[in-house]
Design a protein around this nucleic acid. Structure first.
Lengths: 229, 229
DNA sequence: GACACTAATGTCAGTCACTGACAGTTGACA
DNA sequence: TGTCAACTGTCAGTGACTGACATTAGTGTC
């Protein structure tokens, strides 16, 4: 069934043209992230990025729809991992637990995948720029809500619900997403950039949701119980 | 006590120059919102808006830092009312209840204030454009997080906490904000654009937070109790 | 009421993100 | 080797936004 010369299958070798494209894309991503992390987003022009890879500005825009897009290349990778992890959770697990476990359990794998693309340290520097650049922060939040929408649909499907009829899937993911973002901010604001520090932060923040929403904080000032089924 | 010709106090009359500025600003807002609601955000250029008010493009940018800013003029007004309402909540009230009551109780007043600036119906059409335009949605979310930050600080102060040390204020507002956004979306997606419809939606969504975060949904599928003090 | 002072505005030139059109180059495949 | 299609570069143009400078128009003064 498989001829030798032609590319019948999809895997064996992508062909010179495809490999060249891949190389150009990677080079653009790396150059862009390095420039953004160093100079900041606003002070990095698309011309700079293109020049660093020695292609025309027009070519940059053939690979990325916008300057923003290249800044979120790594985030995009991470997000797809989370979605995958949520999809693979065993049925019957409680909704909040699905999200919690999916994020926490896939965390190490995510960081591994990122590292294969760019140094984790570079990604962190870029993340700080994202958090501190209004235009990028806005884009980040919009992307986050798109991800939340996808997760809400998955949760709804697991529970056999209609996302547009029952508000709970979206409410759960919105609350969850908000908490994750608090963790992200604390992570990028602190000085421990390790993956495990981020996981600890997420755990802590998630453990606080219930108590924070519950009545008077002064009657239960500290966090006493952690795990429930 | 009151002189006639000159502006002695600060209130009586702002002077011709100031009144002209106010008129120009209002005209720009109204023209912009009308154009955005009708043609959409992307198909409305700043030149269009300026031309509609018969001023130069440069003047537009002296009143608004960006094209986005004019689109959020009404939202900004509403936000300031919410902040005010949260500030005025009686001490001792539970944090989540502070937010809930502040939003719900000030809702009618907010809509009144908005109506004085532009027709409520126009604001709703603009809101739909905001929700459906990526660039505006992003800006909307960023503004929302800025508001959340402010609210977190107020809550922290009420409770005598340090926002950067105790994560609960930010977690609470993040979860709360997420839920409010779900309500906003359902409101703009539906067909009842009245203020009371929005209030009902918010109430319902807030009532669902607890149950949505709690364990297994199938054991408590419906929402049975609504009001507590 | 003429006069200086200053804030508001218009005009102009320039940067930067992004796009469509067209032409040149280069892998892919017979 | 030659044809075809995909990639790329160049160029021109739009639209958001900014700085510089000249012009206009309220404001307070004599």
């Amino acid at each position: 069934m498989e001829t030798v010369g032609t590319a019948v299958g999809a895997l064996p070798r992508p062909g010179l043209r495809e490999r060249k494209k891949q190389r150009t894309r990677d080079a653009l991503v790396r150059a862009a992230l390095e420039l953004i992390a160093t100079r900041g987003y606003e002070r990095t022009t698309v011309d700079d990025i293109a020049a660093a890879v020695d292609v025309s500005q027009r070519t940059f825009f053939r690979y990325f729809a916008s300057k923003e897009e290249v800044a979120f290349f790594v985030s995009r990778l991470a997000e797809s991992h989370v979605v995958e992890a949520v999809r693979e959770r065993p049925p019957g697990e409680a909704p909040l637990e699905v999200l919690r476990r999916a994020v926490l359990d896939s965390w190490d794998g995510i960081n591994e995948a990122v590292e294969q693309l760019v140094p984790l340290e570079l990604h962190m520097r870029v993340y700080r720029v994202i958090e501190s650049t209004p235009a990028l922060l806005a884009a980040h939040l919009r992307r986050a809500t798109e991800l939340e929408e996808e997760l809400a649909r998955i949760i709804a499907e697991r529970e056999g619900l209609d996302v547009d009829a029952d508000p709970r899937p979206r409410i759960l993911v919105a609350a969850f997403g908000g908490v994750i973002r608090v963790a992200e901010r604390r992570w990028s604001a602190g000085d421990d950039f390790s993956a495990s520090a981020m996981r600890d932060l997420m755990t802590t923040c998630l453990d606080h949701v219930g108590p924070a929403l519950a009545g008077n904080w002064r009657t239960n000032p500290a966090l006493n119980r952690h795990n429930e089924t």
